[in-house]
Amino acid sequence: MIELDNLSVFYGKYQIIKRVNAKIDEKVLLLGPNGSGKSTLLRAIAAIINYNGHIFIDGQEVSKLRNYNKLSTNLPQPYYLTDSVKDTIYLYEEIKGVDPKLVIQMLGRLGLNSVINKKWYHLSTGQAIITSDIMALASNPKIILLDEPFENVDIGKRRILAEWIKEYGNEGIIVTHEVEIIKLLKDYKTYMIFEGKLFGPVTARDILESSIVEGEKPSAILKIEVSGRTFSFIKEDKGYKVETLVTLDGIYNISA
């Protein structure tokens, strides 16, 4: 289980994550516009950056955690230990339990066998994301942290990746800001993050079937605050239909 207790993250004097609280014991989606704090939240949980407050993984504080081998991520920083994909697979089999056969099988399924012999910095953005996704899933983790796993990925490959994400890991956070992705994972509980504040959860299906209106509505399935204004997600035929938005930036634009 991932527990966030009064979690804040600062970059210099800027507070990116603002006193967030949550208990996550299944795979959830985390939605939010650019710059809302999605990746920062994942980096803090993945122990890539420091934080204030508390993050507990299965009851253990992340800053004091030692050799907990059941969490994987597709964030790029953990793979900076080596420069080539082949060496990463070789080394991470030993220290992270990555299954090399599974990695090769998954890459082959997506037609990306050639990346194995390449340096990470020679991969295209899409190739790097897919390879990181596969590295995260191929250690058969209990908890997965996936930051924009579909970014720059071909539509056809997205469906295959979505199936794998459903298959691997029992708990975790899948970050996106694209509405199309939500449609592939409709049954997932979903949190939304705006300006460093976390809202939710509701199911992705409920979000897709809702509309956004300004103000606090009694029938709201979710209320968010953006720049001091309140918006309600309601299952009524008025306001802006979420399903018609391309990205969550749309919600942000509505509030602007």
């Binding site: 907990y68 953990p78 230990l81």
Partner: peptide, 15 residues
């Protein structure tokens, strides 16, 4: 390797 180390010391067998 700094990002990798802070992560791997907590989430892998690396010490």
């Amino acid at each position: 390797q700094t990002g990798a180390l802070s992560h791997l010391f907590r989430y892998s067998k690396l010490t």
